[in-house]
């Protein structure tokens, strides 16, 4: 678990890294610790999986991916884990999860995000997933995003 200094490091970086030549030194100054400790703590958080990576998060639309679809599938319970792993391994799928159904209105238990520069590209991804799932899938839908209402990422409070 993170200690108090980790927590302060998270608070200081959750909105982004400083855009200065020596960002870890800038953070160290704010936290009152050595830059080498900032780097070591970030490395430890990376190794523990508490940081997925340090890097950039692109806006899909700005990069030309205008068709961002949450594909949802009603897959037989006995087969969903093996098939979910196979869907997640497709090169164009960016997220793939099993989630609970909300019957009767929401029968879907497998969620996979796909992105296309045009509608045909997105639909070809959906068709590839449908072919992979075959008869183990009883129904599916694609929910395209039509507006980003908020995209700030994680925000812990002080």
């Amino acid at each position: 678990m993170p200690d108090e200094i980790d927590r302060r490091l998270i608070l200081a970086t959750q909105a982004g890294l400083p855009l200065v030549p020596r960002p870890y030194h800038a953070l160290a100054e704010r936290l009152g610790i050595a830059a080498v400790e900032v780097e070591a703590r970030l490395a430890a958080l990376l190794a523990a999986g508490a940081i997925r990576r340090i890097g950039a998060v692109p806006n899909h639309y700005a990069l030309g991916y205008r068709y961002n679809g949450m594909t949802v599938w009603d897959v037989e319970d006995e087969k969903v884990d093996a098939l979910g792993a196979a869907v997640g391994a497709l090169p164009f799928v960016t997220h793939c999860y099993r989630r609970p159904r909300h019957l009767p209105e929401w029968p879907y238990n497998l969620f996979a995000m796909v992105h296309g520069r045009d509608r045909a590209e997105a639909e070809s991804h959906v068709a590839t997933i449908a072919a992979l799932l075959g008869t183990a899938c009883r129904a599916h839908e694609v929910l395209y995003s039509s507006r980003i209402l908020k995209k700030t990422g994680l925000r812990l409070s002080d």
């Binding site: 970086t13 982004g16 855009l19 958080l45 950039a56």
Partner: peptide
């Protein structure tokens, strides 16, 4: 806003 963020991407479940 080509990039929405730049920095550590925290996996809060591990925290």
């Amino acid at each position: 806003k080509v990039l929405t963020r730049f920095g550590p991407l925290y996996q809060i479940e591990k925290l």
